[in-house]
């Protein structure tokens, strides 16, 4: 059963078509990867799903509910969170503060302007749990701006995870992470709870084929191929699109 669906989703900037008639269904609990060559419109799709961009046409359904017109923060509250391809972190806060912020917002304490942050035991407990899950314990009191890049990428996912999403959109989580820090990141992604549905955008084919149980290929803003990983890997059209790029799973 699909937890997230798009129906004829399209986005045009002036004369440029960034996404055209994308109809996609993501199953509950799936590990779904969205791949495609550069400029295929993958990030546009994420921006449309998360509400950063408003579609020119089409609809988005989350658990059967039409969320096309909702603001980004409303979609988060309905259970869909995202990460950013280029780090979008709170550089002046510590990882702990940022995570505690996201948790307390989700628990509805965000408008509380009287009690101290962390006064509620639930916030501290959950923040601690997330810090541990994302291996941020040793840096949780540092300013985010000075963290190593790999830790920043982990925090990027941790912030989205702190919203306790049922659908998590990961936009190239491993992009640019140096080899030494890479293993920790991939292990953390692999260990995400099974009941969280994940839509992954990624260039790294190793990661895609080791992680995804379903793959959609986007080319020039339109859905090109959609299917199980081995079927997609064998598809000659996909190979043609990725001419020159390695596609051996």
């Amino acid at each position: 059963m699909a937890i997230l669906e798009t129906i004829g989703l399209a986005k045009r900037f002036g004369g440029i078509v960034a996404a055209a008639d994308v109809t996609l269904a993501i199953d509950k609990g799936a590990r779904h990867a969205l791949i495609g060559p550069n400029g295929a419109g993958k990030t546009t799709v994420i921006n449309l799903l998360s509400g950063v961009l408003k579609p020119t046409a089409g609809r988005i359904l989350l658990e059967g509910r039409d969320i096309t017109a909702l603001d980004p923060h409303q979609r988060v509250r309905l259970g869909m969170a995202r990460t950013f391809q280029i780090n979008a972190l709170f550089l002046d806060l510590t990882p702990l503060e940022a995570i505690a912020l996201a948790v307390s917002e989700r628990l509805g304490f965000g408008i509380d302007c009287w009690r101290l942050v962390g006064r509620k035991g639930a916030v501290a407990d959950e923040a601690a749990e997330i810090v541990e899950r994302f291996h941020l314990g040793d840096v949780m009191h540092e300013r985010t701006a000075i963290l190593p890049y790999g830790k920043q990428r982990l925090l990027e996912i941790a912030l989205a995870f702190a919203c306790r999403p049922r659908v998590l959109l990961l936009d190239e989580p491993a992009a640019g992470v140096p080899e030494a820090e890479r293993h920790e990141l991939l292990a953390t992604i692999a260990a995400l709870p099974a009941d969280v549905t994940v839509l992954l955008i990624e260039h790294d084919m190793d990661l895609v084929f080791s992680f995804a149980d379903r793959i959609s290929v986007l080319v020039n803003g339109a859905l090109f191929v959609d299917g199980a990983p081995d079927a997609v890997a064998r598809d000659p059209r996909v190979k043609a699109v990725y001419l020159g790029e390695e596609l051996d799973a």
């Binding site: 998360s50 509400g51 950063v52 603001d71 980004p72 923060h73 988060v76 509250r77 969170a81 995202r82 950013f84 979008a88 972190l89 709170f90 550089l91 002046d92 806060l93 503060e97 940022a98 505690a100 912020l101 996201a102 307390s104 917002e105 989700r106 304490f109 965000g110 408008i111 509380d112 302007c113 009287w114 009690r115 101290l116 942050v117 912030l159 989205a160 702190a162 919203c163």
Partner: peptide, 29 residues
């Protein structure tokens, strides 16, 4: 002083730092 150390105050600092991300963690900016 109460206000800036509250969750509300923390969210303000976050908005100053990165308003786009605030929307993405569910803060009505």
């Amino acid at each position: 002083r109460r206000l800036v150390y509250s969750p509300f105050g923390l969210s303000l600092r976050a908005i100053k730092g990165n308003a786009l991300r605030c929307g993405a963690v569910g803060i009505p900016v």
